[in-house]
Structure formats: structure tokens, C-alpha cells
Nucleic acid binder design. Sequence first.
DNA 1: AATGAATGAGTATTCATTCAT
DNA 2: TATGAATGAATACTCATTCAT
Lengths: 194, 194, 194, 194
Amino acid sequence: MVKKDKPKYKQIVDAAVIVIAENGYHQAQVSKIAKQAGVADGTIYLYFKNKEDILISVFQEKMGMFVSKLEEILSRDIKASEKLGLMIESHFSLLANDVHLAIVTQLELRQSNTEIRVRINGVLREYLILMDKILVSGMENGEFDKTMDIRLARQMVFGTMDETITTWVMNDHKYDLVELAPKVHRLLMKGMRT
Amino acid sequence: MVKKDKPKYKQIVDAAVIVIAENGYHQAQVSKIAKQAGVADGTIYLYFKNKEDILISVFQEKMGMFVSKLEEILSRDIKASEKLGLMIESHFSLLANDVHLAIVTQLELRQSNTEIRVRINGVLREYLILMDKILVSGMENGEFDKTMDIRLARQMVFGTMDETITTWVMNDHKYDLVELAPKVHRLLMKGMRT
Amino acid sequence: MVKKDKPKYKQIVDAAVIVIAENGYHQAQVSKIAKQAGVADGTIYLYFKNKEDILISVFQEKMGMFVSKLEEILSRDIKASEKLGLMIESHFSLLANDVHLAIVTQLELRQSNTEIRVRINGVLREYLILMDKILVSGMENGEFDKTMDIRLARQMVFGTMDETITTWVMNDHKYDLVELAPKVHRLLMKGMRT
Amino acid sequence: MVKKDKPKYKQIVDAAVIVIAENGYHQAQVSKIAKQAGVADGTIYLYFKNKEDILISVFQEKMGMFVSKLEEILSRDIKASEKLGLMIESHFSLLANDVHLAIVTQLELRQSNTEIRVRINGVLREYLILMDKILVSGMENGEFDKTMDIRLARQMVFGTMDETITTWVMNDHKYDLVELAPKVHRLLMKGMRT
DNA sequence: AATGAATGAGTATTCATTCAT
DNA sequence: TATGAATGAATACTCATTCAT
């Protein structure tokens, strides 16, 4: 059993999400995270190399949910358009159901220093690669415009989703994010379809 | 003559952009900005309330350029679609011509704490309101889809632009950003037109 | 059978010498000593009260070799001057043959806090008392200057030996220490003889 | 006026000597030194690069006194033997008159890590070089034994002085150190003279 | 207006020691 | 006996801001 599988590892990661969401990135001291996790400060360092390592782990662990979900969607035998719709909906849904996580990924974690953000982008890349697969398959089977610049299309999809979620978080999630998913899907589809 | 019109005010704002772009947000100490501006540390505080105030002023001053340009575009007697195209092009163009500023607005300033970013969003709102005007006029005159959710449309436009610029900055601006403007315009138009 | 006679006691003391010599006093953590000794961290505390106790034990155990040797020399039926010569030679010889030990006693153990060093001096006293016996017997039988201040004489003998060994250790023991013994002996004898 | 000449520099160095002597090396926190010096913690760092830098400066500043005194003695037109006597006496005298300093140089500073001690040894070398000059001139003019190993002789002189002072400090300086100077001188001279 | 020396609050990390198994 | 996971106290250094000159 490796460290990641031990219960305290998950305890600490989850505690970090809560502490960062509630206190903000710059006020998320290691001692606060330890207290929230119900362990001693020193225990943190049995599971994580340093504070930076906690933050990256938060992103890795949580982003893993998105990637898994997306892989599952990709494996289905449905149209690319439908896959895109499911991706948007499940992405919105996961964050709408965990407001703490939404705050952390959309606002707080972006305050980390450039080095951490570069490593976070590495984790993100996996997600974007899967997104590209949907776009490519849709272009190949004629659902999406074959002449589309794939990078621009992906930037539109991801940029729109990101901006939509961030706006929702910044407005204190006072409206229903998941409800917006089909509308976003329709808007993006119109831009991309043949 | 108010403080903003005094030469040192501008000196300090410009120094801040350079220092942040070259050293990163977290390494942009007040003393470095003072040195770059050629003034004493204490002098900064004759023109700015605190460090936070410098950062917001950077955004205000520079965002002003974008707003002025956009107002000029809005005043022209051309189609909404053309206005959108010009907005994208001039936005990309201004940042492509000032890489320091692009780094600061797309990467570094986002590392500031949530409070500063909320205030920066306040500054940004002016720009977004003008953007909305283009969208509304386009919807009214039938150029754009009348059934479109205006907020979603704006999030798509802004999100796509933002993501495109950020990707360009993160890739060390090794390709031509301005060249992408018409492509982005076309993609967005397809999504929004009637 | 007391603790000191158990095999693990010696294992741990020897491990401490190696770890301190190779890593330096300040990098000789209990966990490293435990690992080197092939026991668990907690096991250390079955044999030693605390870390300080290990360090003093190192000195006690090793200093024992010097004391035994010196007792043996004292028991011989030879002149005080010869005893002094043998003491110097065997002292130099023991350290020259265990460079780890030399590093530990001359450099590393002196970095310990004042309290430990006071206790180490207690251990050292036994050795100095034997040294005094040589000096006193030499003064009594007319070999050494009867008017000599015994304490000063001992400080000269010990100070010279110590300084000579420390210089040798600090120069990475690149010359032969034992070879210096007769020279040191001659120099000291000249200072002390009638 | 460089930093070393500013009053606060000396204030801090002197405060460090007192704090280290009274609390021990490992309990001499920067904040304690600052408090003793009557400055803020941060002020320390306007004059010293880091804590290590304070400690080395203590030794440099104070050792400077010994070196100056020794240079003055060397410049006199007297016999080498007399120079040696004056050196011992003034060395003992300076430390006897500043017990804090004696504690720091003989006990506390030796607890510093190897890197600091290497740098301290560099400072010490200057003193030893001057000491060598006395020995060499004495050997050349026939006062001292021409066949003497110069390094051993220096180790005897320095080792005896060091051991004598350390013993005095460890015995809580309850006897008169300066009074021992002529005796130490006589003992050493006997060992070295022709 | 301008200076810049001085301030002092705030925090990640290590490691000797314990104790349930 | 032996283990090793868990503990938690303790500290150097940075840098935004002030204020006497």
C-alpha cells in the first residue's frame, strides 16, 4: 500500500481543499490544513514533500475525477456532439456539487507561483488531450467543421467553459451552473458544426 | 492637477509592469518597483495607498487603452460583426505589441489575492459592458441569433479570447497572435450568427 | 547482564561514530543512527535515555580504550619520560587507526552543546588524572622540574597533543600523525625536564 | 562610511557576544540578539547577510583586537622571547577582561557548524601567521632551538594557551588567568630555547 | 515633495521522542 | 523486546509600510 492509498493522504488532500476554499490560498497555512485534517503538523510531511506538493496533489487527485469521467464518456458509442455535451455537463456538475473545489480550482490555485502553475498545467494537459480526441473524431466523421483550427476550437471550448464557471463562482454560485450546460453546448456546437 | 496626472504616477505604473513581467508577481517587491521607477521606496506611498493600489492602477491604466479603443470602434458606422472583428484584432494587437503587459495581465496579475482580483474584475466590467453593446446591437439588427443568452455569448467571446491569448503567452509568444484574430472571429461568428 | 553488555548497545554506539563522522554532528539524526545500526528508531530509546546519552556513551566507550592503554603504560616499570612518550604515541596511534573516531572526537563532538561538553569533560578527567600521575612521579623522582605548576604542565601536554591531532584531522590526515609523536615528546620533555 | 563603521553594526556585534555568552550558542536566537542590541529583528539584516554572518563578524571584530595587539608587539625592538611573553600576557588579559568574549570564543563558537568553523579558522590563521613570525625570528637569532619543527612549536604554544584559557573558562574563571601568563611563558620557553 | 533607514508581523519545516501494537 | 507512525515545539528571514529628516 503506497502513501496515496493510506487514509491520511486523502484526509489531508480533502482538508487542503476546504481550508484553501474557506481561507484563500495565501491564508492556507500548513498548520490550518493539519488541524482541519485532524493530524499534527509534522504528519503532513510523512505524506507530502512540502506545501507545494500538497497543492499539486489536490489538483491531481481532483482533476483525476474529471479525467476518469471523460474517459468513460469517450468510451461510449455515441456521437461526438453528444460526448461534448456530456463532458460539459459532467464538468459543470462535479464543480456545482463541490463548491469548495470550484473555488479552489477557479480562483485560489491560480494564485500559486509560476512553478506550481506550470506543474498544474501538466496535469491539465491530460484533460485537454481527451477533449481534443472528441473534436478530432467529430471532424473526421463530419459532425464538426473539417476546416476548423483544432487548437482554436479547443481554446473556444475550454475558454468558454472556464469563463462560465469562473463567473459563476465569482457571483457566489447564486444561480444553477448545471442548467447552463446544454446552452453552452448548443452555443459551442453552432460554432463548430459543419 | 491630481496625482494621476503627475509624471511620477505614470513612471511608477510603468515600472510596475516591467518589474512584474520580468520578475513575476511574487518577486515584484515595492523596493524593486521604486528602483525601476527611479524614486525612493517612500515616494511610492505619496502616489499609492499601498501595494495593492499599484497593481489595480496598473490594470486600470492599461485597461483604459482597451476601453478607449473599443469605444472608438463602437462609434463607427459598421456592422456589429465587423465591430467584433475589430475588437478582437485590436485587443490581440495591443498585447502582441507589449509582451510585458501581456505577461502581467494574463499570468502574473492572476496570482494576486482574491480581493485584488475581485477589484480587477470591477475594472474589467467596463470593457465587458462595451462588449455586450456590440452583442446586443447585433442581436437587435438580426446579425446575431436573437435567442442567444447574452451572458453566455459574452463568456464565450471573452473566454475564447482570453484562453487564446494565455496559451500564446505560455508558449512564449512564438507564433503570431494577431494572425489568429480573423480565425477566432470567424469561429465565434459562426456560433453566434442567426 | 546490563544494557551496556548487550550487543545492540555496542551496535548503536559504533553506528553513531560512523554516522557522525560521515555526516557531521548536526546531520547525525537519531533516525540515521538507528538505520546504520540496523534497528528501529524506537529501539534506540530502550538502550539510551536520549540522544545526548548516545553522544556521551560514544565518548565513554571510546575514551575507555585510551584509559586502558594508559593504565597499562603506567603499570610498567619504566621512566616517567618513557611513559609520557608511550602515552603520546599510543594516543596518536589509536586515532590514526580510526579516522572516523578522530573526526568525531576532535571536530564533531565539540559542536555539541555546552552541557554535553561539560559531561564529556567529566569522562576526560579520568584520562587527565592518569596523565597527572605520570607528571607527579616524574617530578618526584627528579626527571621533571620539581617547581613546575602541575596543572600548567598538564595543560601544555594535553593542549599540545590536542592541537596537533586537530590540525592533522583538519588537514585531512594527509601526513603521518604517529611519526610526529617522538617529536612532540621531545619538545614537551625539553619544557618539563629538570 | 561603510556598514562596519555604523554604530548599529558594533551594537549588534556586541549584543551577539553577550547573548551567546549568557544563553549559549544554540539558544542565541536572532530575536534575542536584536532585543539586546535595542533594534528590531529586521534591522539585523540591514547589517548582516544572515545569522552565520553575525557569528563570523563577532570573531572577526574581536580577533582583530588580538591581531592589532600582536602586530604592535611585533613592531617593538625587543627579544623574541619577550614578544612571546607579551603575546601570552595580552591574549590572556584581553579575555580575562571580557569574560563574555572568553566564553564565546572558547566554548560557544566552537558549537557552530563546520562551515562557520572553517571560516573562523581563516580569521584565526592571520593570528597564527604572526605567531609564526615570532618563532622564526627567535630561531634565526639563536634565542630558540634552530632544529625545532616550527609547526609543532606553534601547536605547542597555541595548544597550551588555548587549553589554559578553556580550563579557566570551564572552571568559571574563579582564579586569575593573567597571573598564569608568566608561568606559561616560562614553561614554553624552556621547551623552545636553545 | 522626497528620502531611505528602521520596523516587526508572520510561517514552513525538522527531528527527538513517544506509545500502541 | 522491538517497531515506526505520529507528534508538536521552535526559529530565521522577508518585505510592505512608516516617519524623522
